[in-house]
Write a protein that binds this DNA or RNA. Structure first.
Lengths: 141, 141
DNA sequence: AATAGTAATTAGAATAATTCTTGATATCGG
DNA sequence: CCGATATCAAGAATTATTCTAATTACTATT
C-alpha cells in the first residue's frame, strides 16, 4: 500500500537512505520527525507512532532512532540531563531553549560565519561535530 | 586546623561563597575542582574526596555539587548522555572533547567575539546561558 | 514457492546516573 | 545552653536508556 491520499500530509520515505534499509518502523519514525519538527523525545515519537503501528515497542523506537542517527539521517540533541531529543535538520545549527515554555527553536548562524574561525582551539584539533545550546527566555511579544 | 602546609598545594576556601555556607564537605569538593581541572564527574570527585573525608557519601557529593552549581560557583557540563562533569571555570567558554582520549579541553573565543551577535536568534530571545561543545580528534603531534 | 541465513522487532529485565526519603548531626541565633 | 534550621549519610526509588532472548520479517538462492 502506497500512501498517496492519507489523512496527514505525508512524506514518501524511500526504501533505503544512506545505506539504511527503511523498514516500516523506521519509515514511520522518520516520517514523524519530518512532520513534527518540535524536537520530540523518544517517548514523544513512541506515542505518536502508535497511531499507525499500534504494536510498536519503545525499544524499537529507540532502535530506529539510533539507526537513523548512526546513518546521519537525523540528529540527536541533548539538553542538560533531559531526555534526548531528535531533529531532522542536518545543517549546522544550534538550539535555543525557552525556559518558560520548554519549546526548542533552531538557531542558525548569520551568513558567512564559521564558528571554528572564532574559537581558540587546541593545536591540532580536528572538529567533527559542534553543538551550540542556548538557554533563556522569549520576551512576551 | 588551618591547612597551610598540607601535602598538596591547597586553596583556602572562605567560610561562605555567594551566600552559600561552605561546610567541610562543600569546601573539600570545591577544593578538588580547583586543584584538578580535568572536568571530573561526581563519582571522580567522590573517589578523590574520600582521602580527606572517608565517611562522605556519593549523595553528599551530589548535594554539594548541586549547591555549588546553583550558587554559580561552579558549572555543570554535559556531553551527550554521559555523566555530568563539573568545572570551576566560570568565564564564557566551550569544551572540546577529544574522541580518542576522552580528555576535555576548555576552548575560549578569540578576543572581541560575542557569539550572540553571530546567531540569528528568535525575536525577543534573552540569553541566560550558552553552551558550546565540540567533538573531534587531536592530530598526533 | 520453500529454505536458509541475516536483520529487525518485541517485551521485559537490567543498568547507570541521579534524586529522593528518612533519620541522625551539626550549626546558628537568641 | 536550647530550639530551629540546615546539612549529611545511607540506601531506596526513579528515569532514561540499553541489553537479552525469543520471535518475526526479509533477502537471496534453489
Amino acid at each position: 500500500m502506497v500512501n498517496s491520499a492519507d489523512e496527514t500530509a505525508d512524506f514518501d520515505v524511500p526504501d533505503e537512505i544512506s545505506g539504511l534499509r527503511m523498514t516500516r518502523q523506521r519509515s514511520e519514525v522518520y516520517r514523524i520527525l519530518q512532520q513534527e519538527r518540535n524536537h520530540p523525545t523518544a517517548n514523544d515519537v513512541f506515542m505518536r507512532v502508535k497511531d499507525r503501528l499500534p504494536n510498536i515497542s519503545l525499544a524499537t523506537v529507540y532502535n530506529c532512532l539510533e539507526a537513523l542517527v548512526e546513518h546521519g539521517i537525523i540528529r540527536q540533541v541533548n539538553f542538560e540531563r533531559e531526555s534526548s531529543r531528535y531533529c531532522p535538520n542536518l545543517g549546522e545549527h544550534g538550539h535555543f531553549h525557552d525556559a518558560a515554555t520548554g519549546v526548542i527553536h533552531d538557531v542558525h548562524f548569520k551568513p558567512g560565519i564559521n564558528l571554528t574561525d572564532l574559537l581558540d582551539l587546541p593545536p591540532g584539533a580536528m572538529i567533527e561535530d559542534i553543538e551550540i545550546t542556548l538557554r533563556g527566555k522569549l520576551a512576551a511579544s
